[in-house]
């Protein structure tokens, strides 16, 4: 189980390294290699998570290590699933860095399998947790797209053509990436909150009890809802949409970590 994780981790390192090399030398052979290595890493990661499930006897989404590892897994597969339909130049280089950071965090947290607290022993656990985290995977892609948009826009506005101008895709492509990621990520996130609420009713007898994690999920939800609303009504796009996607993802990360470590509540068993 641990060796499996190490293997996955090493494959991710290789994929990220290949993507970074590709970013600088723009050699298409390296990109193809990087893509296959990432696909291999994604498969290895799936097996790792599967073996965690067998070892724990329940869905492995309750410890910090498992959650973050699953987060990285979602980003990887969200990206790979996107690759079928979109070609976004050098998107992989940015996404692989995000995956790498998540994997490093996962690697440094305790890999001990925890006993499942009674409150979590429910069929809702895999449904709620996995939907919420897969939503985060797509939102992470929107975040990458936002960063790329701002970098490209900066070069176009300032008219100084450096590292990014030729390597990044057109602003239009990055803006539609933002829209597509949110079009998938936002409904998943909504579904995550709804399933969580149903589960809360079953476990604690109330749909909503303003626990910090719930509050912050709602705040995050509102950020994305505002962005989508503005996009469809007054045509918010480009820079503002990119900034909102970045802000939204920061809220996602705060909901994930900030709330757990800074604001104790009923969700604080994760850790």
């Amino acid at each position: 189980m641990i060796p499996l994780f190490v293997l996955t981790f090493a494959t991710y390192i290789l994929a990220t390294a290949a993507y970074i090399v590709f970013f600088f030398n723009q050699n298409n052979k390296i990109r193809t290699t990087a893509r296959y290595i990432l696909l291999a890493a994604g498969i290895a990661h799936t097996i790792t998570i599967g073996s965690r499930y067998l070892a724990a006897g329940h869905t492995p989404l309750t410890t910090h290590h498992d959650t973050i590892s699953f987060f990285a897994w979602s980003v990887t597969w969200a990206f790979l699933s996107f690759r079928w339909r979109y070609k976004i130049k050098n998107f992989g280089s940015f996404v692989s860095i995000i995956i790498m950071i998540l994997m490093i965090i996962a690697a440094f947290s305790s890999k001990r399998i925890a006993e499942l607290p009674p409150a979590l022993q429910s069929g809702w656990l895999p449904v709620h947790a996995s939907i919420a985290i897969v939503a985060n995977g797509f939102l992470a892609l929107a975040f990458c797209g936002g960063i790329m948009y701002l970098l490209q826009e900066r070069e176009l506005k300032q008219k100084r053509f450096g590292l990014f101008y030729s390597r990044l895709p057109s602003l239009d492509a990055l803006d539609s990436l933002n829209q597509h990621c949110l079009a998938i990520g936002f409904p998943l996130m909504t579904l995550g909150i709804i399933t969580g609420s149903l589960w809360a009713k079953q476990a604690w007898g109330a749909y909503w009890q303003w626990d910090p994690k719930e509050t912050w999920s709602l705040i995050t939800w509102f950020i994305y809802a505002a962005l989508l609303h503005q996009r469809f009504t007054v045509g918010w796009r480009g820079r503002r949409a990119a900034i909102m996607a970045i802000v939204g993802f920061c809220a996602v990360l705060f909901t994930l970590w900030g709330v757990t470590y800074l604001l104790p509540g009923v969700h604080s068993y994760v850790g």
């Binding site: 176009l156 057109s170 239009d172 492509a173």
Partner: peptide, 8 residues
């Protein structure tokens, strides 16, 4: 060239 970087 620039137009393509903006509009795709």
């Amino acid at each position: 060239e620039l137009a393509k970087k903006i509009f795709g």
